[in-house]
């Protein structure tokens, strides 16, 4: 019987493919949230496996804060083109312009502001389902997520009243205006993602690999120094996110372990320059992946609160 046996990555893969096909069969207007990050790179590979030789039957959606790493944006655009997919980008700045969102006084990070932009895009395109690369091992509120996570007409998650999810029988029923968030990588760990990238020989953006970068110390993290303020007469989008005189600067040999935008992503000291190096580093890591995410440190329930409000 031993030849009829799946190893852990093959098991996780077949589970995720089943979930993706269930979305394609159950929803009229699904979308894939694609940021160019490592988890959504795996989602795209799984979507190829689920739907080829047909086209991937859903567009890609990305919400930009305006503080993105340029490497990530380039990679995102190129990958979508290679796959022949339609890429929809909506930005926090658009939402300001349309009056859908208001800047929070004194708050530099636009992490929270992604929520109204995402909900706005769902409404604009009448998406009834958004596929995301979130994993349960990332964060303890996410550990409570279903594969098919129901959101009401306001995009809200009600963690105390979730639909029971039994066997592989996903309840995909939503009423008009309601929405489903689907997480095919629910059971994957950070290590599984890297091992899958290794096995499938997937390309990832260069910022995951060791490089030299100017960083500054803030809130226990080494944050990247933002690009210089363009002299175009516009206000500096990085105002408040630039190092002050009191914050020490350092030129680091570093990489990212998890990517938000430039304001929320801590760089880690690392010489890892290949996927094999990264796997060795993850195996030996003594802090969690999201330990380098400034957006999670606001409080013990930071993720739970954002998810309740519609965060992905």
């Amino acid at each position: 019987m031993s030849s009829y046996h799946l190893d852990h990555l093959q098991y996780l893969e077949t589970e995720a493919i089943h979930v993706l096909r269930e979305v394609a069969a159950s929803f009229e207007r699904p979308a894939i949230l694609f940021s160019g990050g490592k988890d959504s790179i795996c989602i795209l590979r799984l979507a190829e496996k689920a739907f080829r030789p047909s086209e991937i039957p859903m567009p890609f959606l990305n919400v930009e804060t305006g503080h993105e790493f340029p490497e990530l944006i380039d990679f995102r655009d190129r990958r979508a083109k290679e796959l022949g997919a339609k890429l929809i980008v909506r930005t926090v700045d658009d939402a300001f312009a349309k009056g859908l969102a208001t800047p929070t006084p004194g708050q530099v990070s636009r992490n929270q502001l992604q929520i109204p932009v995402l909900l706005g895009a769902i409404e604009e395109f009448r998406f009834d389902c958004c596929i995301g690369g979130a994993r349960r091992d990332e964060e303890k509120a996410r550990a409570k997520e279903r594969f098919f996570s129901f959101r009401d007409a306001f995009g809200q998650w009600d963690p105390k009243n979730q639909r029971p999810e039994i066997w592989n029988l996903y309840n995909a029923r939503v009423n008009p205006g309601e929405n489903m968030r689907v997480f095919p990588l629910s059971n994957w760990t950070e290590m599984d993602v890297w091992e899958y990238i290794q096995r499938e020989k997937l390309e990832v953006p260069t910022i995951y690999f060791s490089h030299t970068r100017e960083c500054f110390r803030r809130g226990g993290q080494w944050l990247p120094v933002p690009p210089p303020h363009a002299t175009n007469g516009q206000p500096d989008v990085y105002a408040g996110a630039r190092p002050t005189a009191k914050e020490p600067l350092k030129t680091m040999v570093c990489r990212v372990r998890t990517i938000a935008d430039m304001i929320s992503t801590g760089m880690i000291d690392s010489p890892a320059s290949t996927v094999d190096d990264i796997i060795r580093e993850v195996a030996a890591a003594r802090i969690t992946e999201r330990g380098t995410r400034a957006d999670d440190k606001a409080s013990e329930a930071a993720m739970e609160d954002r998810k309740k409000a519609g965060y992905f």
Binding site: R136, D137, K140, A143, K144, P159, K160, Q162, S186, N187, T189, M191
Partner: peptide, 9 residues
Amino acid sequence: IDVAYRYFA
């Protein structure tokens, strides 16, 4: 309250 999933190896 709800099922929490954890992963270890």
